[in-house]
Amino acid sequence: MKTAPQFSCDPREFAGKRVLVTGGTKGAGEAIVRRFIAAGARVATAARSTLPEGLSPDLFIQADIGSPDGTEKLSTALLEAYGGIDIIVHNVGGSSTPGGGFAAITDELWSQELNLNLLAAVRLDRALLPTMIRQGAGVVVHISSIQRTLPLHESTTAYAAAKAALSAYSKALSKELGPQGVRVNSIAPGWINTTAAQKLVKRMAEHAGTDEETARQGIVDSLGGIPIGRAAWPEEVAELAAFLASDRAASIHGAELVIDGGTIPTL
């Protein structure tokens, strides 16, 4: 499949629902925002970057939610605008750690990876979940990564560790909130066709002194290959997020769904 798939959806599927998608200006986050908008939701999103052309969420907060100040800015604005929230998709994440293995990861880099890939979700949940608990309903979806089980030691050790912690946190949260009417699940994508993935390829190529195609193939090989022969599209991740947030998944709770084209070789 050389082009992104086109999916149709019920334009009333999430009518009246208040949805937050973090990191919603690029890649899978942008696709998730578009999917919920198309299904009739009131969608808020936040990111460090500006909105791309043609993306018009109901509410946009430009903030670095990898920082405590950024998460406070977002949660305050969201609660003032919506009074509460029905669905949260914690998509924000990424890695800026250079190649070089464990020795290249300074305390500052560890802190950056943990703040963005774990603590952003923890802080926002702490601020926003009380409204879900009071209303006795809500859905939380955390975007983790298959790298929590298949870390790339050359360049993503800290990112993978943070995502592993996010998956564990998500499971713990599901046990606590399920009896209160709030469903919590996570999604573990594999290789996705995004600008972040392209940047990772570029960093690894620069570190190894090779070309980007060689670096890209090296990443795929280090993961053990992709049996379906291609990376996932952001739109496919968005469809899975929408499914988990919908009533169709009403009995799916405390689970992590993998979307990796068969990359993880075990059950």
Rank of each mutant, 00 (worst) to 15 (best):
A215W: 02
S155P: 04
R203K: 14
P57K: 06
K26F: 09
G29E: 11
A121K: 00
V184T: 09
A77T: 15
E239F: 05
I264P: 06
L257D: 02
T71R: 01
V43Y: 09
H142W: 09
S67P: 08
A47R: 08
L223S: 02
D58L: 06
G66Y: 04
H153G: 15
F243G: 09
T97A: 15
Q6G: 06
D64L: 06
A77V: 14
E80I: 08
D86F: 10
A241W: 07
P98D: 11
I187P: 01
R48E: 03
T214D: 06
D58N: 12
K171Y: 07
A81R: 15
S8D: 14
L177C: 12
I61T: 07
L152E: 12
E176Y: 10
A63D: 03
S246M: 00
A28V: 12
V141C: 02
R183S: 04
D221C: 01
A197P: 02
S49F: 04
R48M: 10
S174N: 05
P179H: 06
G40L: 12
P265S: 09
S174M: 06
I252H: 11
K199E: 15
L129M: 13
T157I: 15
A127W: 00
V122W: 02
A161C: 04
D58F: 09
N193C: 08
M132N: 02
I264W: 09
G66E: 04
H90L: 01
E108T: 12
C9L: 03
T194N: 05
G40W: 06
A232L: 13
G70Y: 00
L152V: 05
A120F: 00
A120L: 03
K202R: 14
R35P: 05
Q112P: 03
L152G: 09
I105F: 07
I32Y: 03
W110F: 05
A165Q: 07
P57F: 03
I105L: 05
L20Y: 00
N91S: 14
D125V: 00
K202H: 14
I192V: 15
A238W: 12
R216T: 11
K26L: 14
D10S: 04
Q135Y: 06
F243K: 08
A168P: 03
R216G: 07
G66M: 04
G229T: 11
L20P: 00
I143N: 12
S222V: 07
G23F: 02
A231K: 11
T3V: 11
L128P: 00
L51Y: 10
V19G: 05
G24H: 06
A77H: 11
R123P: 00
A172H: 07
C9M: 13
I187E: 01
T50L: 12
E72V: 02
A241I: 05
A120W: 00
P189M: 05
L200T: 14
T156F: 09
T71A: 02
L114C: 01
Y159V: 07
P98W: 13
T97Y: 04
E213T: 14
D260F: 02
P52S: 09
V19A: 05
S95E: 03
E236D: 05
G136I: 09
I61R: 00
I264N: 03
Y169V: 00
D86W: 12
I252D: 12
S67R: 04
L129I: 15
S246R: 01
E154R: 10
G70C: 00
